[in-house]
């Protein structure tokens, strides 16, 4: 059965919220509220997301891994480099001295953390991404939109729900 995408734009956040709630509540055949629905908003809008159900975020694991890797790499890189000058001490300090290495390890810890977090962000958020099939520039202005993917059969029902909640505009795109 062929699938189609549908994008509904709302002026009002409460409306969008209501739509999401309703879509999740209703069991429409050919449409899975958990995986086939995407909410797009112009601002960070945790309230709306809450209605989408618990979706875990993994970026912090990247952060942890990156920070640890950065710190370790920093310490070993620095100590290893210092070990090159095995017959040259500096200022009466040991060849591998701790205080400066800790400072640098600290910096590398942060550097690794930040870099890998960004990497994680891109991976987790799926960026850079191709545009989704339906997009309206209005989203980046002031409207909230709900993009759904469903079997052709469910389209009518979804559209009805959208209209019910005063969708400003509904865009459709025929699936393959």
């Amino acid at each position: 059965m062929s699938q189609r995408h549908m994008l509904a734009l709302f002026n009002n956040f409460e409306e969008a919220e209501a739509v999401v709630r309703e879509l999740r509540g209703a069991s429409i055949k050919g449409f899975n509220a958990d995986s086939d629905m995407v909410v797009k908003s112009p601002i960070e809008h945790p309230e709306v997301e809450e209605f989408l159900g618990e979706k875990p975020v993994y970026v912090q694991w990247f952060t942890l891994g990156g920070a640890l890797m950065g710190g370790l790499l920093g310490f070993f890189l620095i100590s290893g480099a210092q070990a090159n000058f095995f017959a040259q001490v500096k200022g009466g300090k040991p060849i591998v001295p701790f205080p400066p290495n800790f400072v640098l390890t600290y910096e590398m810890f942060i550097l690794g953390g930040v870099f890998v977090s960004i990497l994680g962000f891109l991976i987790c958020a799926g960026l850079p991404a191709k545009r989704s099939p339906l997009y309206s520039a209005k989203v980046s202005e002031d409207q909230i939109s709900i993009l759904v993917k469903s079997d052709d059969s469910a389209a009518g029902e979804l559209k009805a729900i959208f209209t019910k909640h005063q969708a400003v505009e509904i865009q459709e795109e025929a699936g393959k």
């Binding site: 979706k55 952060t63 910096e107 987790c124 989704s132």
Partner: peptide, 30 residues
């Protein structure tokens, strides 16, 4: 990068932004 403001993007964005902000403070002090 093809940002569309989807819920997934915003969700990860929020956490990332917060994490880096947390890193930046000790970093700036250091």
């Amino acid at each position: 990068l093809g940002w569309e403001g989807t819920d997934r993007q915003w969700r990860n964005f929020r956490v990332t932004y917060l994490t880096i902000a947390c890193f930046l403070i000790p970093l700036a002090v250091s």
